[in-house]
Deep mutational scan, measured.
Amino acid sequence: MFKRLMMVALLVIAPLSAATAADQTNPYKLMDEAAQKTFDRLKNEQPQIRANPDYLRTIVDQELLPYVQVKYAGALVLGQYYKSATPAQREAYFAAFREYLKQAYGQALAMYHGQTYQIAPEQPLGDKTIVPIRVTIIDPNGRPPVRLDFQWRKNSQTGNWQAYDMIAEGVSMITTKQNEWGTLLRTKGIDGLTAQLKSISQQKITLEEKK
C-alpha cells in the first residue's frame, strides 16, 4: 500500500525546468507551479508516452532531478554507511541512485490517469530550513484521497528550496528505503546496493492501464 502511495505522490513532485522555475526561495510556489507544469506535460505528451513509456525517463531527467536534492536524499538512505564509504564508492552510488530515480519516478508518472491535487495554504517560513507541505491527491475514479507531506529543505548556501522526502501515513519514503535496503547494505555494503540500483534502473517502464 505504501509503495502505491509513494508512486501516486511522485506525480506531483516533478519540479519546473530552470527556464520557467518559480521563486526558488518559496517552496509553496515551487510546489504549486511544479504540480501544474507536471500535470500539463503528462496530459499533453501522452502520444509520446504511450508510444514509448521510457520517454518518461527524459521527462524526469529534464523536469524533476535538477530540483530534487538527489545527493542529500541518497546520503540519508545510506545512513551510517555513508561515512564509511570511499569517495569513489559515493560517486558510483550517487550515479546509480540518480539512474534509479529516473526509472522509479518514471514508473510513478506512468500512473497518471487524470488525477488532480490540492496544496495546503502557504504558511510563514520564518527562519525554518525544513518545511512540510501537505498535498491532497484526488483520484477521478473514486479512490479515497491521498494526503501527503512533502519535505522541502532550504539550501544554506543559495537560499533555494528543494524537495527531498515524502511522508505518507506517518511513514517517510527515506525511512522506507532504509528499511528495504538495510539488509543488503549490511551483507554486501554500498557496492552491493550500487549494483542492485544499476540493475533496477535497467527495467523498462510500463504503463498502468486505467481501472
Rank of each mutant, 00 (worst) to 15 (best):
E169T: 05
M111K: 01
Q24N: 14
S156M: 03
R4I: 15
T183P: 10
N26R: 07
E91A: 12
T187I: 14
I49S: 09
Y67G: 05
R143F: 07
K210R: 14
D40L: 08
I49R: 04
P145Q: 05
A18Y: 10
Q123V: 12
N26S: 12
A168S: 05
A19R: 03
Q203I: 14
G170S: 02
D191C: 04
K188C: 08
N160K: 12
L78W: 03
Q89F: 05
Q178W: 00
V131R: 09
A85V: 05
K154L: 12
K83H: 05
T206S: 10
P121L: 09
K29S: 14
N141G: 07
G189N: 06
A96T: 08
V12N: 03
K154D: 02
E45M: 06
D23N: 12
T194E: 10
A168F: 14
R41N: 04
M111I: 14
L101M: 15
L65S: 07
Q62M: 07
R50F: 13
P140L: 14
D149H: 08
K177P: 00
Q103W: 07
Q115F: 02
T175I: 15
I200W: 02
D191G: 08
I137L: 06
T158R: 11
T116A: 15
L42A: 03
A9F: 13
M173S: 00
S172K: 02
T175F: 04
Y72W: 03
A9D: 02
L109Y: 05
K37Y: 12
K204H: 12
Q157M: 13
R147W: 02
R50H: 12
L184V: 08
Q123T: 14
A21R: 09
K71H: 05
D165H: 01
A195M: 09
Q69I: 02
Y72D: 01
K198H: 13
N141D: 06
Y100I: 13
V146L: 10
N141C: 08
T58F: 06
G182M: 14
A9Q: 01
V146F: 09
T187R: 11
E99G: 10
A120G: 09
P53R: 10
Q62V: 09
N160R: 10
Y164C: 04
F94K: 14
Q151I: 03
V77N: 14
R98V: 08
P144M: 13
D32F: 05
L184T: 06
L193H: 08
G189H: 09
R147H: 09
A120L: 11
T116M: 15
G142C: 08
Q48K: 13
M31W: 06
Q46N: 08
Y72C: 01
L16T: 06
A14L: 14
V171S: 00
I49M: 09
L193Y: 10
E122I: 13
T187G: 08
D40T: 15
I205Q: 14
D149Y: 06
I137R: 01
L185W: 03
Y82W: 08
V70Y: 06
R90W: 03
K198M: 06
A75E: 01
R186G: 01
V12F: 15
A19S: 11
Y164F: 14
P132D: 07
A110E: 13
Q80K: 08
Q203E: 09
Q36W: 12
I174S: 08
